[in-house]
Write a protein that binds this DNA or RNA. Sequence first.
DNA 1: TTCCAGGGGTAGA
DNA 2: TCTACCCATGGA
Length: 298
Amino acid sequence: MPVITLSTPPHFKFWPSVVSHGWCDLPPYGCDESARILYRIQQLNDGSIVRLVLRQRDTGAVEVAVEGLAALSPEQENEIRAVAALILNLNRDLGNFYATLRGHPRYAWIEPLGAGRLLVSPSIWEDAVKTLFTTNTVWKMTIQMCQRLVTLGDPYPGGGHAFPPPERIAAMPPDDLNAHVRAGYRSAYLHELAANIVERKVDLEAWRDPALASDDLYRRIKSLKGFGDYAAGNMLRLLGRFDRLATDSECRAVYRDSINGGSAAVHDREIAAYYEPFGQWRGLAQWMDVMESYLRTV
DNA sequence: TTCCAGGGGTAGA
DNA sequence: TCTACCCATGGA
């Protein structure tokens, strides 16, 4: 079985990155908490389907075992290296984030833990679909919607499926898609997104362009049906932009209970004012507040 | 039954 | 800008 080793930046912590939000529980990801392993079924550009098994060695390096292929071509190895670096945000510099937090005792736990990297998907399409599946539902149902959707992707011989490409979703009649995924009214948004990608009306991967202003990007995301303030803010986070918030019911609850220390409902404006001093990092600080009670235990 | 979840679209002020 | 109402789905 081919094994690839990736060097990591100083102070990189694998597990806090893997469990940085719920994505590690959404197929084609999977994880083994006790063994601290992240799995992913991935379809490569040449169509072959592999199962990636990622873990961190004692040296700090990330090891990617590739199941499903006896050997890797240079192109395959390069692709897997790029995917692993992308999903773990290995190239993101968090130094300025940690420096920003140093004046705030509430966030003193974050830097020693090496938290702040969010696990993302190799494609923005996949992150967009999963974000859509987090809207107006409970996490358990988000998982179930993803599980059903992923069975539409190409199967991995050892079990599981790759994430289905937009072409696969766009080709399905919307009613069939909803009958399979049971995403309710979100199914129509999912189908429309897939169709717009296939018809080249939107180019999600173009969103990676660092020259794009966040405000412009935010508007583009919100122009998609089903993507409002929360979903657009969440997508910006996954794209590595944290200068906007993504205020959902969890964030409101954490702010109300843990920061504001009261039981009264709080207007989003007050939440925004609280995070404003964190500037370009406010969205990440907000998510760290949600994850604190969990991340501190890992 | 009713409420609501890691909300969002639309219409009407 | 804001509010009211609707939107499938399934668990509590």
